[in-house]
């Protein structure tokens, strides 16, 4: 078992805390390009009930918009303007974007 500074533990606890509290957790979802074509909307406010991981949110979005799934599997998700890992926890009030394969330039 590795040693861990007290500060690290406190930070980790704080980070995970939202998941322990059930309650309203409103997330603004934004769809772009092919993703917006599939959902028929540019954004969606989703109440997920509790904090969820990016992985869980993916499943939820697929269930909400079955037509989105073929695009969703090719997409990265961004949380609050940054690309997120699948394990990242999405907290109440976040903005999550479905980012299909990009083609700038």
């Amino acid at each position: 078992m590795g040693l861990k500074a007290v500060g690290d533990v406190a930070e980790e606890k704080e980070f995970r805390d939202p998941g322990l509290h059930a309650g309203p957790s409103l997330i603004r979802i934004r769809y772009f390009a092919a993703a917006a074509d599939k959902t028929g909307c540019a954004d969606d406010d989703v109440d997920v009930g509790a904090a969820v991981s990016v992985r869980e949110l993916r499943l939820l979005l697929g269930a909400r918009h079955p037509a989105l799934v073929p695009v969703l599997v090719q997409s990265r998700l961004a949380v609050n303007l940054r690309f997120a890992s699948e394990d990242e926890i999405v907290v109440d009030g976040s903005e999550v974007a479905v980012v299909p394969p990009v083609a700038g330039g």
């Binding site: 772009f32 390009a33 074509d37 695009v71 980012v99 299909p100 394969p101 990009v102 083609a103 700038g104």
Partner: peptide, 21 residues
């Protein structure tokens, strides 16, 4: 080109499609 969230849709002889999808 790798990371900026920007998309382009081509109009042409092949119809209309999102590039890279």
């Amino acid at each position: 080109k790798q990371d900026a969230p920007i998309w382009k849709r081509e109009h042409g002889a092949g119809g209309v499609s999102w590039v890279g999808l």
